[in-house]
């Protein structure tokens, strides 16, 4: 009897997970229950790697916790993205959860793990691997990991993003249209950067993904 109920419990467990995974995949490729929740695939691509030319970001492999937070923040307005706002407003909390889980599990190419010990040969590499400590700007990789591959649930990957998108986010922080980072950790850095640095470092990380 006991074995049966344990087995049944396990089965339900497995089923729920796979149902959730399916639900996530469905939202990604077909959209949410509300028609205004357009399918992610339209702009972020079937592989989830985004569309560089239009500045739509890579999603594949991003932490589900990070992704859920972004979607909720877009709803709440602490992060502003005009294209995204009608979409997030049409997604339920459950939908946000399952699509975020699906996105985390999407496969990604392997990116080079460029370390702090590497030599630098451009302004972008200089910021990424050395920082600009005279202005309290740490090395990007000291939070985003070697080669900007991302670390844990709070520090997203930079590699695999387009230069367009990365620059647009740094500018959003400077202009205050993005304010959803923990303790303004990114905002105060973006505000200390020059335009030239914004372009250079965005080019650097997007270049590593090519």
């Amino acid at each position: 009897m006991k074995t049966i109920s344990v087995a049944a419990g396990l089965l339900t467990c497995l089923l729920t997970t796979s149902i959730q995974a399916d639900a996530g995949a469905d939202i990604y490729s077909k959209g949410g229950a509300n028609a205004a929740a357009l399918a992610c695939v339209t702009c972020h691509g079937a592989d989830g790697l985004g569309m560089a030319a239009s500045g739509f970001p890579r999603l594949a492999g991003l932490s589900a916790t990070y992704m859920e937070k972004q979607l909720h923040d877009l709803k709440a307005g602490s992060r502003v993205a005009p294209v995204m706002s009608p979409i997030v407003n049409a997604l339920t909390d459950e939908e946000i959860q399952s699509v975020s889980q699906y996105i985390e599990n999407m496969p990604t190419p392997s990116y080079p793990r460029v370390e702090r010990s590497s030599e630098v040969d451009s302004l972008g590499a200089q910021l990424a691997l050395r920082g600009a400590w005279d202005r309290n700007i740490p090395e990007c990789v000291s939070c985003h990991g070697p080669g900007g591959v991302g670390v844990g649930d709070a520090f997203p990957p930079l590699v695999g993003q387009s230069s367009n998108y990365l620059a647009s986010q740094l500018v959003a922080w400077r202009e205050g249209t993005r304010q959803n980072d923990p303790n303004d950790l990114m905002g105060h850095i973006a505000r200390s950067m020059t335009d030239e640095e914004v372009t250079a470092v965005s080019d650097y990380f997007s270049g590593l993904g090519k």
Binding site: R113, E115, C143, G145, P146, V149, G150, V151, G152
Partner: peptide
């Protein structure tokens, strides 16, 4: 916190 085998934090 690590990334792969490497401590980042």
């Amino acid at each position: 916190q690590k990334s792969g085998e490497d401590f980042v934090f």
